[in-house]
């Protein structure tokens, strides 16, 4: 087993299709082929590189053939334990149990923003809204510029502030008949305004 991530060597992501892997391999071979470096002081380096590429390609292909598209090397800086694209598809198809199992297999120290977003999506599909809100919040904090994570998080914030889809059409006014005091309504409005501002890149209430 190499000490480096085989996907990194070929310059592709673990989500890459078989065709993409083959294409990347061919390009790498063209680049480092020993014929190109005849009578060149770099020929030794190129040979080493070539061996590395072959090894990486074999490893990826073997892994795919044996059906294991998840693996763990334990080197720092990489968290390709699970194919997040596949998890996304599982969630979309409603296969929440498998998606959750795959996500849980990712060790805690290599969970990135996408992991938290997907975990939130799993909870949301199950109707576990409290947990979903928590995970979306973490995802949005880890990657504040990701529009997908922000949209999910803002929607939860709006709902937890008391927003109900369609309530505007009932009795003409939004939350006009809510049985709370006016102060809490004002707070809710401010919170929603804050969410909107944050969506646009600004911030109305700096602390949240």
């Amino acid at each position: 087993m190499t000490s480096k991530d085989p996907y990194q060597i070929l310059g592709i992501t673990p989500n890459a299709s078989e065709d993409e892997i083959k294409k990347a391999y061919k390009e790498a071979v063209k680049k480092y082929h020993p014929d190109r470096y005849q009578d060149n002081p770099l020929s030794e380096v190129a040979e080493e590189k070539m061996a590395e590429i072959n090894e990486a390609y074999d490893e990826i292909m073997n892994m795919r053939r044996s059906g294991a598209n998840s693996y763990d090397y334990g080197y720092s800086g990489s968290s390709y334990d699970v194919n997040y694209g596949a998890v996304r598809q599982m969630i979309q198809r409603g296969n929440v149990t498998d998606a959750d199992r795959d996500l849980d297999s990712v060790p805690e120290n290599s969970r990135n923003a996408e992991w938290f977003f997907l975990k939130g999506s799993v909870c949301y599909s199950r109707g576990w809204l409290g947990e979903a809100a928590k995970y979306f919040d973490i995802a949005a904090r880890m990657e504040p510029n990701n529009p997908e994570y922000n949209a999910a998080n803002n929607r939860m914030n709006m709902n937890s502030g008391g927003y109900m889809n369609g309530s505007r059409d009932v009795y003409g006014a939004p939350r006009a008949y809510r049985n709370g005091d006016d102060c809490s309504n004002t707070c809710t409005t401010l919170c929603i305004a804050d969410c909107c501002c944050e969506m646009m890149g600004g911030d109305l209430i700096p602390c949240c």
Binding site: G127, L129, G130, A133, M156, M158, N159, S160, G161, G162, Y163, M164, N165, G166, S167
Partner: peptide, 16 residues
């Protein structure tokens, strides 16, 4: 309040 609001928000989505 937070939990109920989240729940009612989602309930309203399904209702619509």
């Amino acid at each position: 309040e937070n939990a109920v609001n989240l729940t009612l928000g989602e309930l309203a989505v399904c209702y619509m």
